[in-house]
Amino acid sequence: MEYIVKTSNLSKHFGKEVAVEGLNMNIKKGDIYGFLGPNGAGKTTTIRMLLGLMKPASGSIHIFGQDIKQHRKNILARVGSLVENPSYYPHLTAYENLEALRKIIGVPKKRIYEVVETVRLTEVADKKVKGFSLGMKQRLGIAMSLLNQPQLLILDEPMNGLDPSGIIEIRELIKRLPEEFGITVLVSSHLLSEIDQMATTVGIVTKGKMIFQDSIEAMRTLAGHTISIQVNHAEQAWRLLLAKGMKVEHENDFITLQESSNEMVAETVRLLVQANLSIYRVEEEKRSLEDIFLSMTREDSAV
């Protein structure tokens, strides 16, 4: 398969501290790739290497099938980026900031009005960025990243500092990009819920290592669920079900079924009722993605 972004055994360390280690990242065309991990896991370092801001200690990076070492300029001409906090010149207006960029990348002037419109900054385009709110600066950063009509957009924590309506707006914008403009998006976050709402593929990184990389659906199936039943004599119920060869566990007043098919639940309830046990509650317990994420990042390995 042809990948838009492909890293092989990417590593980087600062002195003795390992920031990224043996990282293999694969991003397909048209993906919204959610790059997930706790703060300080190596996301930003990886992104800096993808943009040629840092040189990897070892390993290789191919973007659009070209090696970043040899084709840095070619690649960057087709990439838009927003790394960490947006960079801007506070003493210039939003328009002038974009103009400063435009001169370098050489797109027509009307492109400035388009991106300003896209991120809804038209009304304040002639104001100095100094007085902007955090959210407005963030939007300006996104506008800057879109200015060169990129084929790959790299956004590092783009929701930082946005209010809820801003978050929704930017999320909708990101989701539109692959469909409408064929842009592949790499978006990093430490919040799983954020990635869950827009990504098609997920990569999870912790302590510099990639511990999971697959489609968002594959990740969701890991969030399999269990049924727990509260009964008056849990231990008795547990022995009974074990004797029938079912996979159950018990804890306090609850017994927990590992399998949760409808038939299995019906059978269990029937057995318990027949044994004259009182059933107080039957609950379905979903393992939230947060749980999975936490347990993965804690144990450094896929579940």
Binding site: K73, V83, P86, S87, I105
Partner: peptide, 18 residues
């Protein structure tokens, strides 16, 4: 300091210029 103020270096260097 103009480039340092908001670390605009990272944006500048990520542009397709050497």
């Amino acid at each position: 300091s103009i480039e340092n103020e908001t670390n605009a270096w990272k944006q500048l260097i990520a542009l397709p210029v050497s």
